[in-house]
Simulated scan of single mutants.
Amino acid sequence: MQLDLTPCGPVDISYVVNGPIETNTYFAISGDEAVVIDPAWEGEELAQSFAAAHPGVRIVAIVCTHGHADHVGGVAGMRRALGPEVPYLLPADDAQMPAVNIAHQRSAWGIETEDPGAPDRLIGEGDTIPFGTAALQVIATPGHTPGGVVLFCAAEGGAIAFVGDTLFPGSHGRTDLAGGDERAIQASLARLGELLPRETLCLVGHGPSTTVERELATNPFMGAAW
Protein backbone atom coordinates (compact mmCIF):
# COMPACT_ATOMS: atom_id res chain seq x y z
CA MET A 1 0.00 0.00 0.00
CA GLN A 2 1.17 3.54 -0.77
CA LEU A 3 -0.34 6.44 1.11
CA ASP A 4 -1.21 9.73 -0.54
CA LEU A 5 0.89 12.22 1.41
CA THR A 6 -0.32 15.28 -0.48
CA PRO A 7 -1.59 17.84 2.06
CA CYS A 8 -5.36 18.01 1.75
CA GLY A 9 -6.15 21.23 3.56
CA PRO A 10 -6.62 22.15 7.22
CA VAL A 11 -8.16 19.60 9.56
CA ASP A 12 -9.23 20.38 13.11
CA ILE A 13 -9.56 17.70 15.76
CA SER A 14 -11.75 17.71 18.84
CA TYR A 15 -12.30 14.81 21.18
CA VAL A 16 -14.32 13.63 24.15
CA VAL A 17 -13.31 11.01 26.70
CA ASN A 18 -16.39 8.97 27.50
CA GLY A 19 -17.78 5.54 28.27
CA PRO A 20 -17.03 3.02 31.05
CA ILE A 21 -13.49 2.39 29.75
CA GLU A 22 -12.68 6.07 29.10
CA THR A 23 -12.45 5.83 25.32
CA ASN A 24 -11.32 8.76 23.17
CA THR A 25 -14.11 9.73 20.77
CA TYR A 26 -12.67 11.93 18.00
CA PHE A 27 -14.22 14.44 15.61
CA ALA A 28 -12.17 15.30 12.51
CA ILE A 29 -13.38 18.55 10.94
CA SER A 30 -12.62 19.89 7.46
CA GLY A 31 -14.54 22.97 6.39
CA ASP A 32 -18.21 22.42 7.08
CA GLU A 33 -18.00 18.61 7.30
CA ALA A 34 -16.84 16.25 10.01
CA VAL A 35 -16.32 12.56 10.67
CA VAL A 36 -16.79 11.05 14.12
CA ILE A 37 -14.36 8.25 14.96
CA ASP A 38 -15.06 5.62 17.63
CA PRO A 39 -18.15 7.08 19.35
CA ALA A 40 -17.86 5.22 22.62
CA TRP A 41 -20.98 6.03 24.58
CA GLU A 42 -24.08 8.23 24.79
CA GLY A 43 -24.21 8.87 21.06
CA GLU A 44 -27.18 11.23 21.13
CA GLU A 45 -25.43 13.44 23.65
CA LEU A 46 -22.23 13.33 21.57
CA ALA A 47 -24.12 14.50 18.50
CA GLN A 48 -25.93 17.27 20.36
CA SER A 49 -22.77 18.54 22.08
CA PHE A 50 -20.86 18.59 18.80
CA ALA A 51 -23.64 20.50 17.04
CA ALA A 52 -23.72 23.08 19.81
CA ALA A 53 -19.94 23.57 19.76
CA HIS A 54 -19.60 23.57 15.95
CA PRO A 55 -22.62 25.30 14.39
CA GLY A 56 -22.72 24.94 10.63
CA VAL A 57 -20.61 21.76 10.62
CA ARG A 58 -22.39 18.54 9.73
CA ILE A 59 -21.24 15.02 10.51
CA VAL A 60 -21.02 13.02 7.27
CA ALA A 61 -19.86 9.63 8.60
CA ILE A 62 -19.53 7.55 11.76
CA VAL A 63 -16.37 5.42 11.53
CA CYS A 64 -15.10 2.79 13.98
CA THR A 65 -11.49 1.62 13.96
CA HIS A 66 -12.56 -1.80 15.24
CA GLY A 67 -15.59 -3.61 16.58
CA HIS A 68 -15.07 -3.63 20.35
CA ALA A 69 -17.99 -2.49 22.46
CA ASP A 70 -16.13 0.47 23.94
CA HIS A 71 -15.57 1.87 20.44
CA VAL A 72 -19.08 1.31 19.03
CA GLY A 73 -21.19 1.97 22.13
CA GLY A 74 -22.33 5.40 20.97
CA VAL A 75 -23.09 4.44 17.37
CA ALA A 76 -26.77 3.59 17.85
CA GLY A 77 -27.50 6.87 19.63
CA MET A 78 -25.63 8.88 17.01
CA ARG A 79 -27.56 7.15 14.23
CA ARG A 80 -30.82 8.12 15.90
CA ALA A 81 -29.68 11.71 16.35
CA LEU A 82 -28.16 12.20 12.91
CA GLY A 83 -30.59 10.24 10.76
CA PRO A 84 -30.19 7.47 8.19
CA GLU A 85 -28.36 9.64 5.66
CA VAL A 86 -25.20 9.56 7.83
CA PRO A 87 -23.52 6.18 7.25
CA TYR A 88 -21.94 3.96 9.90
CA LEU A 89 -18.67 2.40 8.70
CA LEU A 90 -16.96 -0.63 10.26
CA PRO A 91 -13.98 -2.77 9.13
CA ALA A 92 -15.22 -5.76 7.13
CA ASP A 93 -13.27 -8.33 9.14
CA ASP A 94 -14.86 -7.03 12.35
CA ALA A 95 -18.44 -7.22 11.06
CA GLN A 96 -19.40 -9.82 13.69
CA MET A 97 -17.22 -8.40 16.46
CA PRO A 98 -19.64 -5.92 18.12
CA ALA A 99 -22.19 -8.58 19.10
CA VAL A 100 -19.46 -10.91 20.41
CA ASN A 101 -17.66 -8.23 22.40
CA ILE A 102 -20.84 -6.65 23.76
CA ALA A 103 -21.77 -10.05 25.16
CA HIS A 104 -18.27 -10.47 26.62
CA GLN A 105 -18.30 -7.11 28.38
CA ARG A 106 -21.75 -7.85 29.78
CA SER A 107 -20.67 -11.21 31.22
CA ALA A 108 -17.16 -10.17 32.32
CA TRP A 109 -17.81 -6.70 33.75
CA GLY A 110 -21.56 -6.18 33.80
CA ILE A 111 -21.35 -3.39 31.21
CA GLU A 112 -24.46 -3.01 29.07
CA THR A 113 -23.75 -1.61 25.61
CA GLU A 114 -26.34 -0.81 22.95
CA ASP A 115 -25.89 -2.80 19.75
CA PRO A 116 -24.83 -0.43 16.94
CA GLY A 117 -26.84 -2.28 14.31
CA ALA A 118 -25.64 -3.37 10.89
CA PRO A 119 -23.05 -1.08 9.30
CA ASP A 120 -24.00 0.85 6.19
CA ARG A 121 -20.57 0.28 4.68
CA LEU A 122 -17.77 -2.18 5.36
CA ILE A 123 -14.27 -0.75 4.95
CA GLY A 124 -10.82 -2.20 4.40
CA GLU A 125 -7.29 -1.54 3.23
CA GLY A 126 -7.04 1.19 0.61
CA ASP A 127 -10.51 2.67 1.10
CA THR A 128 -10.92 6.41 1.55
CA ILE A 129 -13.49 8.35 3.55
CA PRO A 130 -13.87 11.93 2.27
CA PHE A 131 -15.00 14.90 4.34
CA GLY A 132 -14.67 18.55 3.42
CA THR A 133 -11.43 18.91 1.45
CA ALA A 134 -9.81 16.05 3.37
CA ALA A 135 -9.98 12.26 3.40
CA LEU A 136 -9.20 9.40 5.77
CA GLN A 137 -7.12 6.62 4.20
CA VAL A 138 -7.75 3.15 5.61
CA ILE A 139 -4.78 0.98 6.64
CA ALA A 140 -5.45 -2.61 7.76
CA THR A 141 -3.81 -3.25 11.15
CA PRO A 142 -5.03 -6.63 12.47
CA GLY A 143 -3.89 -7.89 15.84
CA HIS A 144 -6.03 -6.24 18.50
CA THR A 145 -8.98 -7.51 16.48
CA PRO A 146 -8.98 -9.27 13.09
CA GLY A 147 -10.32 -6.21 11.27
CA GLY A 148 -8.69 -3.33 13.14
CA VAL A 149 -7.73 -0.36 11.00
CA VAL A 150 -5.78 2.88 11.28
CA LEU A 151 -7.25 5.99 9.63
CA PHE A 152 -4.59 8.25 8.13
CA CYS A 153 -5.08 11.87 7.09
CA ALA A 154 -2.47 13.98 5.27
CA ALA A 155 -3.65 17.25 6.77
CA GLU A 156 -2.16 20.62 5.86
CA GLY A 157 -0.94 21.16 9.42
CA GLY A 158 0.73 17.74 9.64
CA ALA A 159 -0.06 14.07 9.19
CA ILE A 160 -2.59 12.51 11.58
CA ALA A 161 -3.37 8.86 12.27
CA PHE A 162 -6.32 7.62 14.30
CA VAL A 163 -4.80 4.39 15.55
CA GLY A 164 -7.62 2.98 17.68
CA ASP A 165 -6.24 0.32 20.02
CA THR A 166 -3.48 -0.85 17.68
CA LEU A 167 -0.81 1.45 19.14
CA PHE A 168 -0.39 2.99 22.59
CA PRO A 169 2.54 5.08 23.85
CA GLY A 170 5.21 2.53 24.67
CA SER A 171 2.90 -0.41 24.03
CA HIS A 172 0.09 -1.82 21.89
CA GLY A 173 -3.49 -2.97 22.30
CA ARG A 174 -4.48 -6.18 24.05
CA THR A 175 -4.20 -9.41 22.10
CA ASP A 176 -5.64 -11.73 24.76
CA LEU A 177 -9.28 -11.07 23.85
CA ALA A 178 -11.25 -13.06 21.29
CA GLY A 179 -9.75 -12.47 17.84
CA GLY A 180 -6.50 -11.02 19.19
CA ASP A 181 -3.21 -12.09 17.63
CA GLU A 182 0.17 -11.04 19.03
CA ARG A 183 2.10 -11.93 15.89
CA ALA A 184 -0.35 -9.98 13.75
CA ILE A 185 -0.16 -6.83 15.88
CA GLN A 186 3.63 -6.92 15.73
CA ALA A 187 3.42 -7.06 11.94
CA SER A 188 0.92 -4.20 11.98
CA LEU A 189 3.24 -2.06 14.07
CA ALA A 190 6.05 -2.77 11.61
CA ARG A 191 3.82 -1.65 8.71
CA LEU A 192 2.92 1.56 10.50
CA GLY A 193 6.59 2.29 11.04
CA GLU A 194 7.19 1.87 7.33
CA LEU A 195 4.09 3.60 5.96
CA LEU A 196 3.53 6.60 8.20
CA PRO A 197 5.69 9.72 8.11
CA ARG A 198 7.74 9.94 11.27
CA GLU A 199 6.14 13.22 12.32
CA THR A 200 2.65 11.67 12.19
CA LEU A 201 0.53 12.50 15.23
CA CYS A 202 -0.99 9.24 16.48
CA LEU A 203 -4.36 9.72 18.19
CA VAL A 204 -4.98 6.64 20.29
CA GLY A 205 -8.11 4.93 21.54
CA HIS A 206 -7.37 5.51 25.22
CA GLY A 207 -5.04 7.98 26.87
CA PRO A 208 -2.57 10.52 25.46
CA SER A 209 -1.37 10.90 21.88
CA THR A 210 2.08 10.08 20.58
CA THR A 211 4.07 10.26 17.33
CA VAL A 212 5.55 7.64 15.04
CA GLU A 213 9.04 9.04 15.64
CA ARG A 214 8.64 8.77 19.41
CA GLU A 215 7.35 5.20 19.21
CA LEU A 216 10.11 4.03 16.91
CA ALA A 217 12.60 5.40 19.41
CA THR A 218 10.98 4.26 22.66
CA ASN A 219 8.35 1.56 22.12
CA PRO A 220 9.95 -1.88 22.61
CA PHE A 221 7.15 -3.60 20.68
CA MET A 222 7.46 -1.30 17.71
CA GLY A 223 11.23 -1.51 17.94
CA ALA A 224 11.13 -5.29 17.85
CA ALA A 225 8.81 -5.22 14.88
CA TRP A 226 10.92 -2.59 13.11
Rank of each mutant, 00 (worst) to 15 (best):
P220T: 09
L46D: 03
P197V: 13
E114V: 14
M222A: 02
D120K: 06
D38H: 02
V163S: 13
V57W: 12
V63L: 04
Q96T: 14
Y26V: 08
A69R: 00
S30K: 04
E33W: 15
D12V: 10
H68M: 13
G157I: 13
E45T: 07
I185V: 15
G173E: 02
L192A: 10
A190I: 09
L167K: 12
V75Y: 08
V138M: 08
G148A: 15
V150S: 02
R191P: 14
P197E: 05
V63S: 05
R191D: 07
A28H: 02
S188V: 13
P220Y: 04
L82Y: 07
A51L: 06
R183Y: 13
H144G: 00
F27L: 01
G126K: 01
N219A: 11
E33L: 13
I59V: 15
P142H: 01
S49K: 12
P208Q: 05
I59R: 07
A95S: 03
R58T: 15
C64W: 09
T210A: 12
C64N: 02
Y26R: 03
P142W: 06
A217E: 11
A92T: 03
Y88I: 00
I123S: 12
L151Y: 09
P169M: 07
T200D: 05
T113K: 01
G223C: 05
V212A: 02
S14I: 09
R80N: 05
I102C: 10
N18G: 02
D181P: 07
A187P: 04
T6G: 00
V163F: 02
D94R: 11
T23V: 07
V204T: 15
G67C: 14
V72N: 03
A51T: 10
L136W: 09
L189C: 12
F221C: 07
V75R: 11
P20D: 01
P142A: 01
A140Y: 01
W109P: 14
D4P: 12
M97C: 06
R214T: 15
V57L: 04
L192R: 00
I62W: 10
Y26D: 01
G124L: 11
T145H: 10
Q137N: 06
P146L: 08
G170V: 10
R79N: 09
T65Y: 10
R58V: 09
G83E: 06
H54Y: 03
R183Q: 10
V163T: 14
V17M: 08
A155L: 13
Q137R: 01
P87R: 05
G83S: 00
D38N: 15
D4S: 11
C153P: 08
T23L: 07
P119R: 02
L89M: 09
P119I: 03
L122M: 13
G193W: 09
A99Q: 07
C8V: 11
F221E: 04
S171N: 13
E194R: 15
G158N: 11
D70N: 08
N24V: 00
W226N: 15
H104S: 15
E22K: 11
A76D: 04
N219D: 00
I13G: 06
A103D: 03
